[in-house]
Nucleic acid binder design. Structure first.
Lengths: 241, 241
DNA sequence: GGAAGAGGTATACAATCGTCTACACGAAAG
DNA sequence: CTTTCGTGTAGACGATTGTATACCTCTTCC
């Protein structure tokens, strides 16, 4: 049998303590999970090696891989929600110029803009945090109930944000809160597929972006048309494209 | 070090040769993947043990886990597509009584029936093949490119079946082939989420089923309303519920 | 200035793993 | 009847893994 020393450590980096070991472990795990296999199936020694740390260092920060996964999720989901909230503050204010008395046509045009911008933001985020996003989607359907639940909650929270946003800033006529909430969840979930397509087919990105926009608008259009087909027809609005 | 013999084998079954070793390995892998972790992270010895076979027997049938995964996918996706095709033959024939001259109201009512029945079929299938389905969804976002591609193709094929079905039997007015194809893909993908919810929350199954039906109808309604809001309003049709 | 604790390391051990080589046996093929 | 061949078994190997114990710095705090 081989003595297991000195073979374990220095495969990746110099032991620069510029970032904490905890952070190094998280990044190493993400990197490995994105290129190799699922988070839970990673070896404790494997990630320590990638991080340039001693295997036992893992124990100092995490008890198991679920704990590491939760830490990563906390860190990044916060970034995503914050980013979404922040950039959505802008069009919301711009939209106030059209006051609550705006006619349906203005509301619908504004809805198009908001949809376009929100989708762009999501797609930018996933390209910027590609590995984390891919691993996140993977673990959402993965084998750890803990991570599954945490990631489902992230999606649901984003859905709630979207619901509030649509209700507050968009003021689409005739749609109740529950209608909007249902549509939001559908949109958020479908976006996971659009995002993966977007990442995996860089040559078709513009097309995928338009498909996503069309899907969202189609849902809202359908929901309005389901509630009040006559009013929609009478408004003379046309579906874009 | 411990000699690794006699500990490996008989954890599960008697060596009944009623089913082939190959099949036993596939089922054991599915079982383990559903309860433990991802397919690719399974140990060769692990599944052999679960199947009640010698570790080396794995080599007789598969070179690696991708190969085993593909075999499972072939076997079950065939069952699903065949089941869908077969049960869809019935309403298609019944639908022929309403000839091509049927008015929009009849076509829309028939669409509701077909949607209801197709969704019921899918949900029945996933409950009947729960472990295989869960593992399939998992590997669709998993780390093996081979399995990912194979499972995406399964979904896309089902989407094409649905497209042909809608075009052939439903004859919804105003929708082009490309519109229907796009909607079909959206529906198939969203159904993966509905199906998982359905499995994980048995107490809310009826509600989830209705949500799924509503989603599909909403998309078609929206697509028709996008093409021709006036005609839809003039037809006097009401969205169900 | 000594104690306590957090973060990182070194070494060791048993268990498990993938794989290699060799053997057994029934069925089909010649 | 003998020869393949497909399938399953047995035993062994070196590599790798998770974990336990012990030691080594630094900060921080009293």
């Amino acid at each position: 049998m081989k003595k297991d020393s000195a073979e374990d450590r220095p495969s990746a980096k110099v032991p620069s303590p510029l970032v904490s070991g905890r952070q190094r472990l998280m990044e190493a795990a993400l990197q490995l999970a994105a290129t190799t296999r699922s988070l839970a199936s990673l070896g404790l020694r494997e990630v320590a090696r990638q991080a340039g740390l001693n295997p036992n260092t893992f124990y100092r920060h995490f008890n198991d891989f679920d704990e590491l996964g939760l830490a990563v999720i906390d860190q990044l989901s916060g970034q995503l929600r914050e980013g979404l909230r922040e950039r959505r503050r802008r069009p919301a204010e711009a939209g106030l110029k059209l006051s609550d008395t705006a006619n349906p046509g203005d509301a619908w045009r504004k809805a198009q803009d908001v949809v376009r911008e929100s989708i762009a933001l999501v797609l930018d985020f996933v390209t910027e945090h590609r590995t984390a996003y891919v691993v996140g989607i993977r673990e959402m359907h993965g084998s750890s109930p803990v991570l599954r639940k945490a990631l489902r909650k992230v999606l649901d929270d984003i859905g709630e944000d979207m619901t509030e946003d649509v209700l507050g800033a968009l003021q689409l006529p005739l749609l109740q809160r529950e209608d909007v909430a249902e549509i939001s969840q559908l949109v958020i979930r479908q976006m996971t597929f659009f995002s993966l397509d977007y990442l995996e087919h860089p040559e078709q990105r513009e097309q995928i972006r338009r498909q996503a926009e069309r899907f969202v608008l189609l849902l809202f259009w359908g929901a309005i048309a389901a509630k009040a087909p006559q009013e929609l027809a009478a408004s003379g609005l046309r579906f874009p494209d």
